[in-house]
Design a protein around this nucleic acid. Sequence first.
DNA 1: TGACATTAGGCGAACGTTCGCCCGAACGTT
DNA 2: AACGTTCGGGCGAACGTTCGCCTAATGTCA
Lengths: 338, 338
Amino acid sequence: MARITIKDVAARAGVSYQTVSKVLNHQGNVSPETEARIWEAVQESGYRPNVSARNLRTQSSNLIGYAWQRSLDDSPRPILDQFLYDAISTAEQHGYHLLTFLVDLKDAAGVPIYKELYDRRQVEGFILADTNHNDPRIAYLMEQDIPFASFGRANDDWDFCWVDIDGRHGLRIVVDHLIEQGHRQIGLLTWPEGSEAGAYREEGFVDSLRNAGLEVRPDWILRGTNTVQFGAEGMQHFRARPYDERPTAVACVSDVIAIGALNDANAAGLCVGQDIAITGYDDIPMAQYLTPSLTTVRQPIVAVGQRVVDLLLQQIREEPITEKGILLKPELIIRESS
Amino acid sequence: MARITIKDVAARAGVSYQTVSKVLNHQGNVSPETEARIWEAVQESGYRPNVSARNLRTQSSNLIGYAWQRSLDDSPRPILDQFLYDAISTAEQHGYHLLTFLVDLKDAAGVPIYKELYDRRQVEGFILADTNHNDPRIAYLMEQDIPFASFGRANDDWDFCWVDIDGRHGLRIVVDHLIEQGHRQIGLLTWPEGSEAGAYREEGFVDSLRNAGLEVRPDWILRGTNTVQFGAEGMQHFRARPYDERPTAVACVSDVIAIGALNDANAAGLCVGQDIAITGYDDIPMAQYLTPSLTTVRQPIVAVGQRVVDLLLQQIREEPITEKGILLKPELIIRESS
DNA sequence: TGACATTAGGCGAACGTTCGCCCGAACGTT
DNA sequence: AACGTTCGGGCGAACGTTCGCCTAATGTCA
């Protein structure tokens, strides 16, 4: 079956092929009769426009790039998956598709692949996720003046489009809640320093304690990878301390870490929610079915995917940008573990 | 900054633009001196080929399509993520990228999007995952004669390219192991009927029991969604039965389900690994850090991503296909829970 | 030295669209 | 009746490549 072009349709409808183009793009003056005839010819012939030809002519690609990263510590990334789904969905509503590619973030040498894709006119811009302080990707894209928008912030003085969820607020409401429950000794299991999201959440943790006039004890703040293992180790570490020298409540910066903490506490015979409180962050689906069910923070992910894509498309279309940085508020989900 | 084309490079090197094309594509007769001059001009001008133009001329797109699905029961899909990563990696080694799009699988009405993308010459073929018996996507792609390859099988009498992991063997080695541990009463927590992967795993379960001369009790096979919740409910259901009427070992078709079962057993005061054995399937990263650590089945995912892409590219290039169906063997990981 | 093969590179054409301009017919206006 | 407008549709050109053929110059051999 030879490929069907606009010319075949034109021949069938008895018009010039350029007229067919006009009809397909809903522009220009065509009489209702010929228009109907052309649509009929399109139907009968099963014509589909050739994307490459169209792209070449219109100097566009209707493609957005997204760099797929192997999760560094092999932890599940339910939030990223969800974000990506909603981003794709929004993009498709605007006639765009997502092109995924790999970038090696171990050394910054992998970053030029962004420019490569952009210069080849394969994509019109990028979506980023999992950003960090001094993120080399963001620095590079800004410097090269390539359109992009990110889920997550970077340095405060960098001027680019981002959408983020207010982790500071997230941990603040968690700790406020724990204090309200009567806890005065509160620990934190968080990521290593240098994590952008981690820094904000830690700020919220500190804010809330200070606000309540409580002391911030550095030895109650433990850092590690985003794994169940670290959660268990952290809890073990706390348990090893003398009774009045250890937290009665432990806030974790992710549900994955909280699961580890929960496991360890359960295994040690503690009654979580009674003897000790544990909270997570993310509200992964599993959270409500753990024993005990996990108090955690739910993030408005759907909105993020949409807003990020919207921001990117505004840049691509060179429309005025309504709001360069968008900060959304998360929500506290109280369950049995606190 | 105006865009740089092959003609700019040609002007700079003092040759015709077609000669530049020859050099870029490493073909044709060009003297070493001019070739060097042209490469230099390419460097200096920062020329990058225009993908749309190239695609139009060569009638290709170097894009592979993959339909992103929202996980139906919101369960994590670590295997899919891993598969996708390796698939992209392999594709990129062959100069291809991945185009992701959404397809609504609730009604089969969403399926024609595949043909649409293919007919528009936006992609050259597709990768599928999470296949099922009577999978409408596979039926459609076969009927339309569109190149594709899948991770997962469908109906036995359908002739298409797939790579799969032998779930029958997977559950066989699990149950063999349980029997060897002395268990005679073995239950199964599996997915609803109609799941292709579930059916194979169940066959392996039955195989192994029969092989050992043990009875297969239908009331010890429970079906539900791929969630922690179902795992917990299933275990609860077993526990509610009289002592000699309940399994002493429970095999689960996924780690997620096993986690639920583990939780429930732990909460009920059972000593898992002693009083009762529980096994999972997938070897998600969390599995080794659960208490007790989870006996499970590890799948050779990296190989799958590679093989699926290889199979697809063979079709696209119309090379002879070496092996239409590839079945890989999983591996038993024995830990404390059994 | 003449016939022929090889090499370097030029040139026209084509891939399948969209875009802007042009033209003739029909119509309305003064 | 002459003129200006509007409408329907045609036409050439261009987007940036690659491909195949052609030609002139050079080399090779009898």
